[in-house]
Design a protein around this nucleic acid. Structure first.
Lengths: 208, 208
DNA sequence: ACCTGAACACCGTTCAAGT
DNA sequence: ACCTGAACACCGTTCAAGT
């Protein structure tokens, strides 16, 4: 790895994302990232106050290729599009995805995407105070669904018993026909519930 | 700290929770917990395969005093009651709450509470496959809302700009009248959206 | 004034040596 | 066979010493 002439925050962020993509979260240490750049670990502290701040920047960068929704679509379709796009972008960078889930980034790309969500909710007809409530609810749901998708990669034995409990209900499907934790289908279902709830809420407001 | 005659998994779990409550997540290290018990750090590995497994047990213990809902209530009221109770129990143990949020515990207490959620959703009239989808959606939302409540303790500057963006909407309220990230009110609003969505979904199913 | 790297105060876990 | 604690391979960050 040739050392670049001058170190910048962007160079560090890009290098950290690369290390995370290649070797996972654990490898994204200050020492390891510095080694990737061929510089002293302490040099990173010239551009970021601490590791948390660096990871925040990496998380935001990972959302760079999450696309804004087509403004011609309905507010419902735009919400689905932007949230699905964020989820896909995050899952393309599993090293930093857990950090995105735990601390939704609100820098360049995070704000751009949040603006798309806010715009859709305003068009749905929610009053401003509910727009922020609904935005945070959607981001919260996205974050947690993302975290579950990451853990579902492992042999999600922790959910087996829960699924078994449901299989014991009357009219139950066979256990292996039950939806899988963290799947696209599972994500879409919960998102659908929230959007249905938003629609109901917006209609109530209009009647009042 | 007097060393108990025999070390058990329960003793270790209780000691770990106590350390976490008193000194936060960072203090819940194998070494620190062992010191609390007056034993060698390696002794813990006789009862738990690794730190993750120990924290899973602590997370479940923290939910011990989350109460089951009153079976006489409507399914909506029961859902609100059980999810609010889980959130309160978790917030009473901030040291382990982040772990609960990231990895919903599904041992003794986690399963008991999940059963309450499943029961309410089945009574709402969802088919079994949707019961599991909705259960996971509710748990996901709860987990993330919990994580946000924990971070909101800090001077949540990260959300200020998002709130500023909403304050710029037509009909906006003054910025300081906007709902606060991670507040009880914020949690309740998102939960209300999900429940409204579940009601719509259950009605659709009934018409079909 | 700026930058470096040694040092501090920790980690989780392995494993060889003791009983 | 069981248990212990020394040792390994790391951490994030501080800070004194160099330029």
């Amino acid at each position: 790895m040739p050392r670049p002439a001058t170190l910048t925050a962007d160079l560090i962020t890009a290098a950290a994302l690369k290390v995370g993509d290649r070797e996972g979260v654990k490898a994204m240490s200050m020492r390891r990232i510095a080694a990737e750049l061929g510089c002293d670990p302490m040099s990173l502290y010239r551009h970021f106050p601490d590791r948390q701040a660096l990871l925040d920047a990496v998380a935001d960068l990972a959302l760079a290729d999450a696309r804004d929704p087509d403004p011609g679509e309905s507010w419902e379709a735009r919400l689905v599009a932007v949230l699905t796009s964020i989820r896909s972008a995050a899952l393309r960078h599993p090293g930093i995805a857990a950090h995105i889930a735990g601390r939704p980034p609100l820098q360049r790309h995070g704000r751009r995407l949040a603006a798309a969500i806010i715009g859709a909710l305003a068009e749905a007809g929610l009053p401003p105070a509910d727009v922020i409530r609904a935005t945070q609810a959607l981001i919260a749901y996205l974050a947690a669904a993302l975290a579950m998708s990451l853990q579902a990669g492992e042999p999600d034995a922790r959910w087996r018993e829960l699924r078994a409990a449901i299989a014991a209900l009357p009219d139950a499907l066979p256990d292996d026909a039950l939806p899988v934790t963290g799947s696209d289908d599972q994500f879409g279902y919960g998102l659908g519930l929230l959007i249905a709830g938003i629609r109901v809420e917006a209609e109530h407001g209009r009647e009042r």
